[in-house]
Design a binder for these strands. Sequence first.
DNA 1: GCGACAG
DNA 2: ATCTTGTCGC
Length: 323
Amino acid sequence: MEAQKFEVPDVGALLRDLVKQVPRGRVTTYKALAEALGDPAAVRFVASWLASHGEDLPLHRVVHASGAMGKGEFVEPEELAERLRREGVKVEGLRVTPLIRYFFAEFETERPLARLRREQEEVACRVRLQPLPKDADRVAGLDAAYLDSEGIGICVVCDRGGEPIDYVEVRHRITFPYIPTYLSYRELPLFLTAIEEAEKKGLSADVILVDGNGILHPRRVGIATHLGVLLERPTVGVAKKLLCGEVNTEGMAIGEWRPVVLEGETVGAAMRTGRNRTIFISPGHLADVRSAVDLVASLLRENVLPEPLRWAHELATESRTRP
DNA sequence: GCGACAG
DNA sequence: ATCTTGTCGC
């Protein structure tokens, strides 16, 4: 099986370009930058990325939506205010006043996140929900860990009893940041090569478990779904936190599960595993909620995660200790 | 007061 | 996810 070509934009570089577009004497906001990238929900990425990668940028021209000075690791707010004043911007009490008078948002941009969203919607159109193969006797688990900007991808293949058979490890430079609902663009390249390497080694699985969501996603295309559709293979997503949708987890017994509903549709299940931990299971591709839940339940032991994912996580974390 | 977004 | 001090429980 050939690795799929999977292009991801350099959003960090694009964000730099956007900040450089803000003229002297004008200010923009974190939210306006996120919108210029194509998704206002990326505002936290914008703030955190600028705080750690924006040392050489004119960050005094990026303020909160309230007009308040931004917060970075490089410059004190008083100094930011001083820099703005020198450019003719009025700052009172560490706030640009009135913001509207100096506000800039006329960015030259191709809105990269909006393009990725359209791509996700196209992938979502190709999802097929159906029961998992009944004769599945090998289940893979995919997980990632990070060492600075290097990503570590693990693909473990387990037998039907959850016993690991073998695994592969791959490493990639990762540039795409974590932005909620765009996880695929960060981790899928890692997973695609891990699976390719596994197949080269003669390691294959009937179903692939992924650390993340399947159709339990605002556009019904979480990382497990994206992977499944690209490879045309059965996948199931397992997440440790709820991304979206609604579910009542009150008084759940261990092993019990309840549907996660999104816009009136059941897109997954919340299941209580050991202790007080709840996991969120959703079909990726060529799976449905019922069979995904059954498969995960059959691979659950004492751990929070089903065995293939528990092993993948353990191996990925362990790999970080030996660079 | 609003919102709370997988890894 | 990672970083990381202090705190709780087995």
